[in-house]
């Protein structure tokens, strides 16, 4: 064998040796055990920390809420769908609070009217129209949405006092308490409301609009005279319009 060839073979052998040594250390140990990948990567993926917890942990502490939830339409919904992942809360419930949203937009994620939603699967409302003055949770119990707050209160009192109206119509109340009508009970103008409380969407309240209706209290010669109630001559005062064209009914000294 010529010298050069032997040298060449030796050099080649060294290269192969170095190469195999490098390969020995560089290729991960479990590579190729199961396929062309690192078998340890399976365990690596399994070791990822989980965030969403078992909901039995929720009902352990929040028994009352979970009891009310299990009777309503939301019974199948996981607590964490609305409240976010519970891993931190169960570690330290006082410091790490769960998410809680009472915004209309939050409920609208599921319940807003959308052509793509099947009406048999989910109840939808037009959120641009449905009682826009109030938050959903003022009227509906979020954990069991069939339970309406006002209904529960009226069942207890057997009455329809303004306090119950305010539960849903709190924005109107805020306007009303600013003006002259603050001491007038809702029922004086809108009538009896027990049916409306039972099914608000089906039984609407009476909404007065005629001049004669306002005249019952404010018309000269029609209304019984009493102190502090502004008297107006219905035959002269801006006869072409309805009162509520200019005045805001709930706060009459404010104008539209």
């Amino acid at each position: 064998m010529p010298n050069q060839l032997r040298n060449l073979i030796i050099v080649f052998a060294i290269f192969v040796g170095l190469f195999l040594t490098a390969r020995h250390f560089l290729v991960p140990k479990t590579f190729g055990d199961l396929g062309h990948y690192r078998a340890d990567a399976l365990q690596y993926n399994i070791d990822h920390e989980k965030k969403f917890v078992d909901t039995t942990l929720c009902s352990n502490c929040h028994t009352d809420i979970s009891n009310s939830k299990y009777v309503g339409a939301h019974k199948l919904i996981n607590c964490q769908t609305c409240h976010g992942a519970g891993n931190k809360h169960i570690e330290n419930p006082t410091i790490n609070k769960m998410e809680k949203s009472s915004e209309r937009e939050f409920c609208a994620k599921c319940h807003a009217k959308n052509l793509a939603r099947s009406s048999t699967v989910i109840k939808q409302v037009d959120i641009t129209k449905h009682n826009i003055d109030s938050k959903c949770v003022n009227c509906h119990n979020p954990h069991s949405p069939e339970i309406k707050m006002a209904q529960v209160a009226s069942n207890q009192n057997k009455k329809d006092e303004p306090a119950i109206c305010i539960m849903c119509h709190d924005k109107i109340d805020k306007i009303k308490t600013k003006g002259m009508h603050k001491s007038v009970p809702c029922q004086s103008c809108h009538g009896e409301g027990l049916n409306h409380i039972k099914s608000p969407s089906k039984s609407n309240m009476f909404k007065p609009s005629k001049r004669e209706f306002c005249g019952k209290c404010h018309g000269i010669g029609i209304a019984p005279k009493s102190k502090g109630i502004k008297q107006i001559d219905l035959k002269e005062h801006n006869i072409e319009n309805k009162c509520i064209d200019c005045h805001i009914g709930h706060n009459p000294l404010e104008f539209k």
Binding site: F19, A22, R23, L26, V27, P28, F31, H36
Partner: peptide, 15 residues
């Protein structure tokens, strides 16, 4: 990058 080298890496060859 060296993961792609033949031999010392784990080149996914021929796929």
């Amino acid at each position: 990058f060296w993961h792609m080298l033949p031999g010392i890496g784990t080149m996914n060859w021929p796929a």
